[in-house]
Design a binder for these strands. Structure first.
Lengths: 135, 135
DNA sequence: TTTAATGCAAAGCGTTTGCACTGCT
DNA sequence: AGCAGTGCAAACGCTTTGCATTAAA
């Protein structure tokens, strides 16, 4: 499911983002290749595949994509770095504490029932499952 | 349930922490008065109640207390600042998005059932409920 | 030609660290 | 005297910002 440059470009335009070459490269990576990358990892990929892009542009573009809803940004307990997630669907995460790897968990695989005081109205739930993946 | 200085002092000693005046003051605040305070808030309280304590000592002491298991440190999605929690029992949090207030939620009030691929072995779960408290 | 995007370096924010000094024991 | 604890300022890691330069419509 490799999207063409034209497709990616169109998706950016639809999101209200002018599809410059730098943005397309970043978008291609985070939307197709990167697995929960940090800004640092995006920058490293760009250095290899689209040299001369500044870290500021990486951050600016990632923030744009997040604001446009094309990407989600998460902060996890185990690191200070923001992690970008192409999965914009409702889902949770499993953190493999051995490797630091994040694994998407579909919302249907986690069932939560709360029994709170009635004045607490829940609008959303954040779940991080911590553990190990057997190998 | 105001603990005496002697009691607090003893608790610190039992935790392997030498009870200096600064540490006692910080411990008194976070263990009895502060509601999920940040280091900044601890420092502000100290400035009012125990002047001349450095920010470094605040951080060092909070870290000591966390290592000793007397306190827990959390990072939440809505802020970069670490939040200290005197509740060392297994519990979750409700974040009032209107006020930024954190409310402890006893573990018994949240029931979670997961249905993951068998190779994912869960050791712990992080839950943050986001919403509003009706008033 | 007007406007937006980029690159660079500096600043910002929360937290940590190095090191000299203080004060118990 | 010895040594843990403290205070100060500098350093740190990640992210954002200001501003001059470049590219695009």
């Amino acid at each position: 499911m490799e999207a063409s440059t034209a497709e990616l470009s169109e998706r950016l335009q639809r999101a209200g983002i002018k599809p410059t070459a730098q943005r397309l490269a970043i978008y291609r990576y985070v939307a197709e290749e990167g697995e929960h990358p940090t800004a640092e990892q995006v920058k490293a990929w760009m250095d290899r595949n689209f040299p001369k892009v500044s870290l500021a542009t990486v951050y600016n573009t990632l923030n744009l994509l997040v604001q446009a809803g094309e990407l989600r940004a998460f902060r996890f307990p185990h690191t200070d770095k923001v992690v970008y997630d192409r999965n914009t669907a409702h889902h949770y995460h499993f953190l493999d504490e051995e490797t630091g790897t994040l694994i998407d968990v579909p919302a249907e695989q986690v069932h939560i029932r709360t029994d709170l005081e009635p004045e607490l109205k829940v609008d959303g739930i954040h779940v991080v499952l911590r553990g190990r993946r057997r190998h």
